[in-house]
């Protein structure tokens, strides 16, 4: 098991390296292939009034005139030892772990992202709890009452839920519940949990429900399919033949097995959301990592985008790792194989 985890860790690091290299290549190499010079890149960071010498100096100071692999190496190294930049006369230091330095905002990227992590985490975990409870419960009932009115209605709504984009449901619900009925807080209102937990939950209520609706729909369908399959297994027949109560058969024997693949997907979904629920955060103007990324893209602030991509990829890779380990804990056949 330990060897397995170590091997997976190596794999995770390798994945991150490859992701960073590709992202780096897209941001720094592709513009050059398109004919852009180091000076063109640097000109974005020194203001409109700069003269060519200043631009060239900035390009040099920021390392944009170095070969690609040297630049990548500098970027990689900075994660462990930090890095110094020179904007003409001004010096800047990005302390380790340095995930990039915004040349526009003149500040390191990582602290910014970490500042916004609680917002994204609040959104992701809150929504996750709602959608797991709601989605799995709906799926189980649908599977047990297959073909009933409940099943058909639930699956119809689920189909709608999966197909409706969040910016649509989000905006519609904002209009109805916030601006018309005034039941929930308007977009952009976020209270940190340490200030006032009640307000925190209240401010996130609508984003949670909107985000959870999307995932509940998918989880209801997954759970239904999983339960239908599991309840047809031979061991369910055995459990009934033993005279177990139907409730025990469904929960202990059916659901336990049906939930295994769902736990896997759940881990990946939460990992993905932790790296920024881009659409939800934009729709509700929540100052999370996703909003940060959108703002960075709009501002064409490449180091920020780069930092975000690596950060988000890190969450996905870690979630993957956790899921694999958890899987082994849930299923003894994997554990002992």
């Amino acid at each position: 098991m330990v060897a397995y985890i170590i091997r997976r860790l190596f794999g995770a690091v390798l994945t991150l390296l490859i992701v960073s290299m590709i992202t780096f290549g897209i941001f720094y190499l592709v513009p050059r292939w398109a004919g852009g010079t180091a000076n063109d890149l640097a000109s974005r960071y020194v203001g409109r009034t700069a003269n060519p010498e200043q631009v060239a100096e900035a390009a040099h100071g920021l390392g944009l005139d170095k070969p690609f692999f040297v630049q990548y190496w500098d970027w990689l190294q900075a994660i462990f030892v930090g890095r110094d930049f020179a904007f003409g006369a001004t010096q800047a230091h990005c302390p380790a772990p340095c995930l990039g330095y915004s040349f526009i905002g003149r500040n390191p990227v990582l602290p910014d992202i970490l500042d916004r992590l609680p917002v994204t985490a609040s959104l992701a975990f809150g929504a996750a709890i709602i959608w797991v409870i709601f989605g799995v419960a709906t799926g189980v009932v649908s599977a047990l009452k297959r073909g009933s009115i409940f099943d058909r209605a639930a699956m119809g709504i689920a189909l709608g839920g999966v197909s409706l984009p969040i910016f649509w449901t989000g905006l519609v619900s904002l209009v109805i519940f916030s601006y018309t009925l005034h039941w929930t807080k308007p977009g952009g209102a976020y209270t940190p949990i340490e200030q006032n937990p009640g307000e925190w939950a209240y401010s996130l209520l609508l984003p949670w429900i909107t985000l959870a609706l999307l995932f509940s729909a998918a989880y209801a369908r997954l759970t239904r399919a999983g339960m239908l399959e599991t309840m047809g297994e031979d061991y369910i027949r055995t459990a009934r033949a033993k005279g177990l109560r139907e409730r025990t058969v469904v929960t202990k024997h059916g659901l336990r097995a049906a939930l295994t693949p769902i736990a896997t997907i759940f881990g990946l979904d939460v990992g993905l959301l932790m790296g920024g629920a881009v659409l939800t955060e934009s729709t509700f103007s929540l100052p999370g990592i996703g909003k940060y990324a959108i703002d960075a893209i709009n501002a064409n602030d490449m180091p920020k985008v780069m930092g975000f991509v690596i950060f988000a990829a890190g969450f996905v890779v870690i979630a993957n790792l956790i899921v694999d380990v958890v899987y082994a804990v849930i299923d003894p056949r994997v554990r002992l194989a």
Partner: peptide
């Protein structure tokens, strides 16, 4: 018939 599938794997 098949005790492997008739017993719960977990």
């Amino acid at each position: 018939q098949d005790p492997l599938s008739a017993m719960h794997p977990y």
